[in-house]
Nucleic acid binder design. Sequence first.
DNA 1: GATGAATGAGGGTTCATTCAT
DNA 2: AATGAATGAACCCTCATTCAT
Lengths: 211, 211, 211, 211
Amino acid sequence: MAEPDEHPASKRRQIIHGAEIVFTECGYEGASMSRIALRAAVSKGTLYNYFTSKSELFAAFVEQACASLIQVFEPVCEQEELAVTLNRIGQRMAALILSPDSLVLFRIVVSEAGKFPHLAQIFWQTGPQTALAYMSDWLGQEMQAGRLQPSDPTFAAEQFFALCQTRFGMKRRLLLVTETSQEEIDLVVGGAVRLFLNSYAAAAPVGLPRS
Amino acid sequence: MAEPDEHPASKRRQIIHGAEIVFTECGYEGASMSRIALRAAVSKGTLYNYFTSKSELFAAFVEQACASLIQVFEPVCEQEELAVTLNRIGQRMAALILSPDSLVLFRIVVSEAGKFPHLAQIFWQTGPQTALAYMSDWLGQEMQAGRLQPSDPTFAAEQFFALCQTRFGMKRRLLLVTETSQEEIDLVVGGAVRLFLNSYAAAAPVGLPRS
Amino acid sequence: MAEPDEHPASKRRQIIHGAEIVFTECGYEGASMSRIALRAAVSKGTLYNYFTSKSELFAAFVEQACASLIQVFEPVCEQEELAVTLNRIGQRMAALILSPDSLVLFRIVVSEAGKFPHLAQIFWQTGPQTALAYMSDWLGQEMQAGRLQPSDPTFAAEQFFALCQTRFGMKRRLLLVTETSQEEIDLVVGGAVRLFLNSYAAAAPVGLPRS
Amino acid sequence: MAEPDEHPASKRRQIIHGAEIVFTECGYEGASMSRIALRAAVSKGTLYNYFTSKSELFAAFVEQACASLIQVFEPVCEQEELAVTLNRIGQRMAALILSPDSLVLFRIVVSEAGKFPHLAQIFWQTGPQTALAYMSDWLGQEMQAGRLQPSDPTFAAEQFFALCQTRFGMKRRLLLVTETSQEEIDLVVGGAVRLFLNSYAAAAPVGLPRS
DNA sequence: GATGAATGAGGGTTCATTCAT
DNA sequence: AATGAATGAACCCTCATTCAT
């Protein structure tokens, strides 16, 4: 199961961890292999024994970071009221958008999307697309069960996720806000659920709060 | 009328234009003053006669690019059916999101938001915030006129803009799509208007299309 | 008397004055023509209308500075007791060595003596050599008058001047002392006069102070 | 015996040697790291593996040069006639002043004393001050032994050293003389010893030579 | 397999000098 | 005669990469 004739995986992880720290702090161009070597506590030469170039190390870091983000969505959605499940999914999505880790990853992937289109694709696939597929599946089931009006479940999921980014999505990416209160998150997610169910629920529309 | 005692503005523009090309292509760190000088067709020394440093030139480029984006939203919204106006606004917002100029600006501002928080702020203010204020005002009027349910108009505007980014917002920022068909835009904007009016319109909800 | 077909001398002086400020502060290499132009309140182009190069402007500055230093020695030596005259000459020499103007000139000429041997020569001739010739003449007269023992008057003058630099000569040039008290100057000059007269006076030797 | 975990000292010396050549020839500002690298036969990058900056390399060069000068004064002064010992010390001092190595060091330290006061201090301490302390001690002993009149031994030493610079001290620093004949050195040192002993010796004054 | 000294191209920036106005 | 915008070489320094140990 191990890779006996390869570089030990532990040192590889160690290097990627150092790379994560530095890339995260300085971006791709701003990071130097010397600093990464320092933070990974290996020599500069060793870096090149494990990765043929800076760009390859960067790719490895991004891929690993993407992989570690996806888990967030694993355990979702039991049998309960629709609004409650949607709320939980929305809260989770909001948490993901607001989390420093995903934020920094998003920002660095966007920065280098021109130079590393492959990484942008990986980010998309392991992140948003996976979440989308998951929710789309679930919505499809609910539609078939008659609890949601029949419609394109993928588009519905996309709209819901778009709504979950109301207010803080862009500001967060621009680093214009550092913290977001739970009240505000509740407001945004609640609003997303309301708009979503008012259009997609099989039942009667939900009333708006008076401002 | 001319500016006899100043650096000629035309050359300043020429330099900023060269900077735009290179910054746009390589990002801030990846761009070199040599390349900018080459693209601007001036000597490297001349760059420093107009801008004291690379960062200042970058700031000038971003500010100018922000200023040239804002006009998009100026003339909007007459007296007509709500859905029509919303559709026009949504189309305009979608066009903005999809335009290469705003896209490239967004990407570079996000990249350097850590190093140049001031520029992120400028981008936010001249772009999203202005559009938001504008639409919020209009929605407030419609609410007072009884054509929309009374609610927080700013939040409603934020939700509408979030909905307008459905499907292609993030993919575009990751450079995963280069062109978007008008049909798809119509689908997204139409979907945004539908969800919006279903919740906010004073009248009865609009039906969903069958997928 | 003026130079009607030449550059006006006043602007020339103005430029040299600016050069003096900057060269004095930054040294030859450290000074930039831009700064000199700024300090002289003329354009950079004008600098080159009056001086063909930075080095020529530097030469002009050094020559002018040398010329303005020499005057220090003009009015010396009346008819009075030998020790009194020597003391006055010594005091003047000490003042010259300690004066900021001559110090800065010496330091800059020493710095650039390799590159501008001509300037070192000018400094020597207008400064030390002139003082030397002057004192040597006077000593020669005193020897002929029988008030000093017959000897090489130039060498005697050189020794006296060397003695006047006791203690603070080198430290001052190394910028290790910024101020010197009058007591210390008196001590050094007094010591110089004593040693000088003990050897050169026709009369009996002067006693040393007990430490 | 070797230094396995350090930069090899030999290459360090090699670099300092190259720096010595270039700094000596061009001064601090005039020297370029490229030229130093060329003269040291290493790449420019290597310079920065050993010294973090140009100024640090300069400091290392000056300190090393100071250290190598100090030895001149080590073995002095046995039991013999005063005039003979003084003559030997004077000759040594003259040799030091006239030596190209100390000359070039003095000139560069004076040049940069404003920018590197620490180096001026080091130069002073390892050079003149050490010599002074040494001679002052010896003079103090001779005074106590009754062979010199009691007086301030430090001041006496300072006067003697000042006298030893008669005639060629300043001219040499200005690079106005490149070689000095032994006759002239003998004349200057002999004159210094004579003036010194005429004032400080316990015995009768020594006669002056007729010019 | 791990090291880190060595490299040299390229980074941002300064500056003496020129020349059209 | 005076200007100052333009130049481009040279500045100090960084860094991805290599290779002898």
